[in-house]
């Protein structure tokens, strides 16, 4: 087992690294889309008037209520029907990003609504506008509160970017499958993949813990 693991690592190391790179690209890009989208949706749901609120609500229910794989297939196979053709990696980034936006919106929304109204009232009493209150009072606190769940989402995306395999994006899972069929060392290759996923998940959560510590408000116990 060990020698086979070494063999695969040495012979296909470069290929695996390329797969890992694509996995990272999909993860980071879709997370960014998800965060930006999620932030907008959350703000719309907490802060704005009816119509926007309804749109945001429908979006969340739609993307939370259907499997991510269906969404991916829709982007990759259905969009070309109306003339939008995208490559596998881009399709994955769009689908996973849009899906993640629904979840991140909920994390940020619950963080936003957990900020005590007393502070918001104090900000109004100083003469701050609604937008300034959002930017300087609500968001800085909401992001701090949401960091643990947002980290969870990042780790989740890192692992579930593997569904890009189904639309032939050459990410880690796809490369692994390729090597496995070529070498017939299925178990060894998948063990190697699992180790890689675990390793980088731990790295991600350590980075998040570092950020959390950095942003912690002194003396403040949540």
């Amino acid at each position: 087992m060990i020698s086979e693991l070494l063999y695969v690592s040495l012979k296909y190391g470069l290929l695996l690294l390329e797969g890992l790179r694509t996995t990272f690209i999909i993860t980071i890009a879709s997370y960014a889309i998800g965060f930006a989208g999620g932030l907008c949706i959350a703000i719309a749901r907490v802060f704005f008037h009816k119509i926007l609120k309804v749109f945001a609500g429908v979006y969340v229910e739609l993307f939370r209520g259907t499997p991510m794989l269906v969404q991916l297939f829709f982007v990759y196979y259905a969009l070309p029907e109306i003339g939008i053709r995208v490559d596998p990696v881009t399709a994955s980034i769009i689908a996973i990003g849009l899906n993640s936006a629904a979840y991140q919106a909920e994390y940020i929304r619950s963080a936003l609504s957990s900020i005590p109204y007393s502070e918001i009232e104090a900000a109004y009493s100083l003469g701050l506008t609604k937008l300034n209150i959002l930017i300087y009072i609500m968001l800085p606190q909401a992001i701090r509160i949401a960091i643990p769940t947002l980290t969870n989402e990042a780790i989740y995306l890192f692992k579930y970017s593997s569904i890009a395999y189904f639309v032939t994006a050459s990410e880690l899972m796809y490369v692994g499958k390729l090597i496995a069929t070529r070498t017939f060392l299925y178990v060894e290759v998948y063990v190697l993949l699992a180790l890689l996923y675990i390793l980088f998940s731990i790295v991600l959560s350590e980075i998040a813990r570092y950020i959390e510590r950095k942003l912690q408000i002194p003396g403040y116990v949540t």
């Binding site: 009232e121 104090a122 109004y124 100083l126 003469g127 606190q141 403040y220």
Partner: peptide, 20 residues
């Protein structure tokens, strides 16, 4: 109204300082 509010201070029972 925010311009009017900026000319009136308000001090709350529970201080309501911005905790961050």
């Amino acid at each position: 109204i925010h311009n009017v509010r900026s000319k009136m201070g308000f001090v709350f029972q529970h201080f309501n300082l911005f905790s961050h």
